[in-house]
């Protein structure tokens, strides 16, 4: 089953307005909830080497420390703003990207070529965490809404509505961007300038190769008498 989207604006909003102690308590509750839902995840995290990773959402006033490995139970805590102790590694990015990472939608390779995600420090710690999260089907949506207890249904409905509006907007944006893509418009009509462009490109390539060949010939002519002991 495909996990649903937990709307990032809502998370951002809630986390910005919530006072630190409320947030800390909410994190504890979510962690306990996840431990019940994903015992294997916690077992796998404990098996890793011990690491502390700082998570710094660029669009939030808070930072978090995630501690796992070394045969101890993993936990997350809110970092005191004055706390300067560095972690083994640090992940920076906006809430949207971080939520995708947590739910296994960004992979080990993409970690390094995804815009808007900055990894610093011990890269192995982040890869270990990413790979371990990927072993689980994590649906934050379900985990968060189930925390509302009797209010789960209304909460789900509210979240779904926000999520849907957001998805629709995203879909429209994606369609628009698609329509701007050069290859798609070219495929559709293949106007004359495309052929001309390709012909010119080919000609340029041929000329570049010819120049390179001539340059090499010149170098070889000069270099033939060179002492091979000269490196």
């Amino acid at each position: 089953m495909k996990p649903s989207n937990l709307p990032a604006p809502l998370v951002r909003g809630a986390m910005t307005v919530a006072p630190p102690f409320v947030l800390a308590r909410a994190i504890d509750a979510l962690l306990r909830k996840m431990e019940r839902a994903h015992p294997r995840l916690f077992k796998n995290l404990a098996r890793l080497k011990p690491y502390v990773i700082h998570v710094e959402p660029s669009d939030l006033p808070h930072r978090f420390a995630l501690k796992f490995g070394g045969d101890e139970k993993a936990f997350v805590r809110l970092l005191d703003p004055r706390d300067e102790t560095p972690g083994d590694a640090c992940i920076k990015g906006n809430i949207d990207v971080l939520l995708n990472l947590l739910q296994g939608r960004i992979d080990g390779d993409a970690l390094f070529f995804t815009r808007g995600l900055v990894i610093a420090g011990d890269t192995a710690a982040v890869v270990a965490l990413r790979n371990t999260l990927d072993r689980e089907e994590i649906d934050l949506f379900a985990d968060v809404t189930s925390m509302f207890g009797p209010l789960q249904k209304p909460a789900e409905r509210a979240l779904t509505a926000i999520g849907r509006a957001r998805e629709a907007a995203r879909h429209r944006a994606a369609e628009f961007i698609d329509s701007l893509r050069e290859d798609k418009t070219a495929d559709a009509a293949a106007p004359a300038w495309v052929n001309e462009r390709d012909a010119l490109k080919a000609e340029l390539k041929t000329l570049q190769t010819r120049i390179a060949k001539l340059e090499v010939r010149e170098k070889l002519a000069k270099g033939a008498s060179q002492d091979p002991a000269h490196s």
Binding site: I211, E215, K219, L220, G223
Partner: peptide, 19 residues
């Protein structure tokens, strides 16, 4: 590195007796 390909290499490796 010299702007050529293997098939059109001009034996450019001959320029560098030590690589």
């Amino acid at each position: 590195a010299n702007g050529l390909t293997k098939d059109s290499c001009q034996f450019v490796c001959g320029l560098d007796p030590n690589g």
